[in-house]
Design a protein around this nucleic acid. Sequence first.
DNA 1: AAACCTATGTAACTAATGTTACTGTGATAG
DNA 2: CTATCACAGTAACATTAGTTACATAGGTTT
Lengths: 210, 210
Amino acid sequence: MIQELKNNYGHLFEDELLEEINSVATFKEVSEGIELIKPGSYIKSMPLIISGAIKILREDQDGDELLLYFLERGDTCAMTLSCCIGHHKSEIKAIAETDSKLIMIPVGKMEEWTAKYKSWRNFVFESYHKRLMEAIETIDSIAFLKMDERLLKYLKDKTKVNNDNTVNNTHQEIAYDLHTSRVVISRLLKKLEVEGKIKLNRNSIKIISL
Amino acid sequence: MIQELKNNYGHLFEDELLEEINSVATFKEVSEGIELIKPGSYIKSMPLIISGAIKILREDQDGDELLLYFLERGDTCAMTLSCCIGHHKSEIKAIAETDSKLIMIPVGKMEEWTAKYKSWRNFVFESYHKRLMEAIETIDSIAFLKMDERLLKYLKDKTKVNNDNTVNNTHQEIAYDLHTSRVVISRLLKKLEVEGKIKLNRNSIKIISL
DNA sequence: AAACCTATGTAACTAATGTTACTGTGATAG
DNA sequence: CTATCACAGTAACATTAGTTACATAGGTTT
């Protein structure tokens, strides 16, 4: 694990901290589709993402969903941070977007390290900043963009986090993420196909040029 | 200023920190409508809010606006925090919603205090958490609510932060905050009036029961 | 191959929101 | 007093998004 840590977080944390992480953290591999965090649950450890991608969703009372953002290599979950520190319940849902490798840090250490290591504090603050910006970017999308533009942005984001120019999702799955209906997504995707920007297949969408 | 500090932040910070704040911070009074932060600007000091309320807005390229949330007594601006620490530009706009009293803390001290005072760290983390939650609540509103429900929520929030059950805004101003058009707001407000929930006047809306 | 399931395509319709255009009204400056 | 202006009311229409309903296509199971 220490090697994974050094490769991915070596430029951020000093050796002493890397050693500490190595001695208390546990390594975790998750498969695509695994639910990591449920809304309403308490969280006992904080993930550092080594590889893969995690999808962060908001869920309302009726179970309606909305994609907030993706976490990638080098990221951590700001919601988890604040839940841990403030002992709040989780307000979001996290699902492995792809097979992913994580390093799980026990809650107790985090507090300790914010006092002890400047690099850790910076990492935590930077994480909060990034997440707040992602949340605001999501607000921008919903508030200022129309559904066709949101769909385009979604496809772009997907190809980026999956590092694959084929999006392996059904129209229904996309509709859930964007909080709209399957018919709307099918309609707009068809429009994009007619425009030559994508090629539609069963269970997948080949991106040609966005 | 020390008295204002103790009254409003005494339960959060230890005496030593209160003294430090008192010795380096400056007191600032702003009138309703004053723009405190422009998008794109760099920020040199961080506000602790003593009284009043600050409106935080997002602005897109076209100058279209959207209300994100309000800051009140005891709050600080998480965007400012992360801008200061990460030396990013401001991504938001802040306007005094009411006449407000602020204590401005120079950027340099913040970093220092996060190492030195546990209470300060907790305050900063708690602020981030609150702001992230507010941003997500805003996402909920836009994504899951229809315009009439958003308007109701807006009126409720307004009466709360202003501590006044008359909302002193034109329909156009409300339309800007909710990123819609004046006609839409007039239409929905009229509906609320017919339902007996509000009383419309020129430049103001009397809340009867929401 | 028949039966079945899931995903997608599409038409027709409804609902919500946004736009344009015009009217009326209260406040106020000259 | 009246000209002007900002604000609000409302109708008519356009656009976008959501809904219902059904057809078809591809893949799987039996």
